[in-house]
Amino acid sequence: MSKQFSSENIARLNAEILVKCGVDLKECYQCGKCSAGCSSNWMMDYRPHVIMRLAQLGQRAAILASQAIWVCTGCEICSARCPRGIDVAAVVDSFRQLAVAEDVRYGEHDIPLFHQYFLKETRDHGRVRELPLVANFKIHSEHPLSDFALGPTLLAKGKIKLVDDAKGSGVNDLQELFKLKV
């Protein structure tokens, strides 16, 4: 299937990313150094330079539906090494935000799901309570019973607690942070 390019899509996505993270996509000259250094490139459907290329060509939907944007660990090696000074990690992060905001069906399910409940725990309690995090994640995932056998061992070793209501010390400040609009 050939890709259809349109000037409107190219201009729109370029402007969108520029506003979101300050990166001018046109700067990229496709040398591939980001992909070569990427620590998780072997797990990605599109490697970082391909994400950049698709972005340059306005292929928004393809990127949002990719799994690569969720596999990215945000280690920022790509950004540190880019000869054109492009913050590639920020571009990938922008696409993650867009994917969340537009509720597209992600190419990868577990990682964004885990992100979601991790942040919920942080916001509500100022810290992460292991059992509710795992429970919420597992219930909403497509594999609720996998890893279940690990539960008793973790409980016995005190790694997860059945009752855990302690709040983080800076919970109020943290909640203020979450209210900020970026």
């Binding site: 299937m1 050939s2 890709k3 390019f5 391909v50 060509l57």
Partner: peptide
């Protein structure tokens, strides 16, 4: 009709 060899895909 051409090829974007960086993407490895046909373009039109």
């Amino acid at each position: 009709k051409g090829m974007d060899t960086l993407l490895g895909e046909e373009v039109e």
